[in-house]
């Protein structure tokens, strides 16, 4: 991993470190996210992106400067910024008469746009309007998808995957039970309206081991309307979803450990052909020349019989 396949060598040690950190790895960490402002972002889109940024915080960057670009027509700026910040997820906010309060969410693969989904924020209540205790930053939320539309509509299916990508944070092995504090609910209707709600989970006593769940809304609460989409082709998406060998968890067969912890392997050996086994050589057991001749003749006869059979079958 120490060598970078690149014509121009990094000049500084730090530069080399940066380049090495940017190289693709078999098992990736959490995806970084960028939030950009498009052309004329409205107050609502600005606040909304900020709220999503707050939810995503350690793995996100919020860029407040306006950018004069249209992601659906030319996404090169996004690709450039993602390359610069080493991000794979992005959100762009813009506002126009035709598409009021426009939020574009998307992701990249190898710094090229993979998915672009445009959502209109129809109703929005920011986090600051809910006057209560919020959850800790960096918590892994429970994701709840409601409604059959998530599975039936192709765009929504991809959007579901995108939302999971945005909010699932990171693959983890263990989780603290008291740390299950945040629930994000995505409800889709058949008309393409998506209700995003965010709750704090309160664990109450139930008289049993499993607690009773109560929820308290902490915001943001957004009603999205699905607008345009630009989804990756299936083959590209499939390539992006490739699982590296290192991450595959297959059960290794025929390996066991004994009580002392030493590794035992069971191997398979084919059946031994005893007929061909070389036993002790003796002069007396040698074949005479006549015997050998007869053997040859026998073989030949067998062959010719076989051939005649084959021809007759044909």
């Amino acid at each position: 991993m120490a060598v970078i396949q690149r014509i121009k060598k990094p000049t500084t040690r730090k530069g080399k470190k940066v380049l090495l950190a940017k190289e693709p790895k078999p098992i990736e960490g959490p995806k970084q996210c960028l939030f950009l402002q498009g052309r004329n972002p409205s107050e609502r889109t600005r606040k909304l992106l900020k709220d999503i940024y707050d939810l995503k915080k350690p793995d996100a960057a919020y860029l407040s400067r306006k950018n004069d670009f249209v992601p659906f027509e030319d996404a090169s700026l996004i690709e450039k910024m993602c390359d610069k910040k080493d991000a794979a997820l992005f959100g762009v906010g813009s506002h126009s008469k035709k598409r009021p309060h426009n939020i574009i969410l998307g992701r990249t693969f190898n710094y090229n746009i993979l998915d672009l989904i445009e959502l209109g924020a129809e109703n929005y209540k920011p986090m600051s309007e809910f006057h209560n205790m919020k959850v800790l930053a960096g918590l892994k939320p429970c994701l709840l998808f409601n409604g059959p539309a998530w599975d039936l509509n192709q765009d929504l299916k991809r959007l579901k995957s995108l939302f999971i990508d945005f909010f699932h944070r990171e693959k983890i092995e263990t989780i603290r039970l008291q740390g299950l504090e945040h629930a994000l609910s995505f409800t889709a209707t058949d008309e393409g309206v998506i209700y995003l709600r965010s709750y704090r989970i309160l664990l109450k006593k139930s008289g049993q081991r499993t607690p009773r769940v109560e929820l308290e809304e902490i915001g943001p609460s957004i009603d999205f309307k699905l607008r345009r989409t630009k989804l990756a082709a299936d083959d590209l998406y499939k390539e992006a979803c490739k699982i590296p060998k290192e991450a595959k968890t297959g059960v290794k067969k025929n390996i066991s450990r004994d009580a002392f912890g030493s590794k035992l392997g069971r191997i398979h050996i084919g059946k031994q052909d005893i007929g061909k086994l070389q036993t002790r050589k003796m002069k007396g057991l040698k074949k005479t020349p006549e015997e050998r001749k007869q053997m040859l003749l026998k073989k030949k006869a067998k062959k010719s019989v076989n051939q005649t059979q084959i021809t007759s079958i044909n």
């Binding site: 693709p24 990249t108 693969f109 190898n110 990508d165 590296p244």
Partner: peptide
């Protein structure tokens, strides 16, 4: 347990 949802990677498999 292992997650079952497959999400696209950020960069191709090296």
């Amino acid at each position: 347990p292992q997650p079952t949802t497959v999400l696209p990677r950020a960069k191709p498999v090296p």
